[in-house]
Amino acid sequence: MVQFLTKKRFKKATTQTLQLIAIVLITFLGLLLITFLIGRVVPIDPVLAVVGDKASSEVYERARIAMGLHLPLWQQFFIYLSSVLRGDLGTSVLTAKPVLDDIFRVFPATMELAFLATLFGVFVGIPLGVLSAVKRGGLLDHISRVVGLLGYSLPIFWLALLALIVFYAKFDLLPGPGRVDIFYEGIVDPITGFMLIDCILARDWEVFRNALSHLIMPATLLGYYSMAYLSRMTRSFMIEQLRQEYILTARVKGVAEWKVIWGHALGNCSIPLITVIALSFGTLLEGSVLTETIFAWPGLGLYLTNSLLNADMNSVLGSTIVVGSIFLAVNLFSDFLYKVMDPRAR
């Protein structure tokens, strides 16, 4: 009987996993198709971007054939597909390097920023949401609502500029744009690409401090958005859970109120919150384009902006694919965590 049960369960888990993989593959294919089509639709001539506008028509024609642009669209797509699957995203016109290498170089900076921003969002947003759910209609609830509303509605580039003016230009409390001050640049070997980790590996605490102080402003600003979102979601999840009868049960048992709230109720919220955190992390990875531009943060967002402004389509499409894939991966991971955490979904 027990054996039969485990067998059945195993079978269920396998089919679920297979289904999930199928869905991911289809989504990924769709992502590639859309980026490919965007690349053909935009009024940028990829040949011209390579040969320059002073090239003769023979050179132009030869380049066009070399790039396979004379073939029918569906053939072009398959060529594109097979090269992407081989990990070849083309060569950047701007840096003259393979796009994938470029992305590997700049991505850790974005990741570092998004990770710290999410941490900020989680550690400020969730407690704020819990407290405003517990004291609904109280002062903190109103404050968090206003803060949240501002977080949703203020454009980040405006806030970022304002923050730079106040904290950097006016009062000089925090350093300005960039990952480190200019005279610290290049001191630490980029082993992982994550500045903080590299500093720890090199045991260079001076650069570490400097890098950390550079991170504070952009990470807090980005994190502000995820905090606003997370606190509102946490609040509504908590209100829902606090109404449930198992909360009454815990109180009947004589469990202390803080344990009822932070243990029983938040414990039940943590499952849907995983998805929310994962999604907001994914959004931060793309949403950092504006922030990175303003803070001159050498990450994926800045790379994408520069490529766009220089009509470097290979880089733009490559970055799009990478961001899209990460979004997919984050979703997959949150689904997986969901299954692990929720006994009912196992």
Partner: peptide, 9 residues
């Protein structure tokens, strides 16, 4: 069904 916490043993 409602009076037991669903995510604890």
């Amino acid at each position: 069904k409602y009076s037991l916490n669903p995510v604890r043993t």
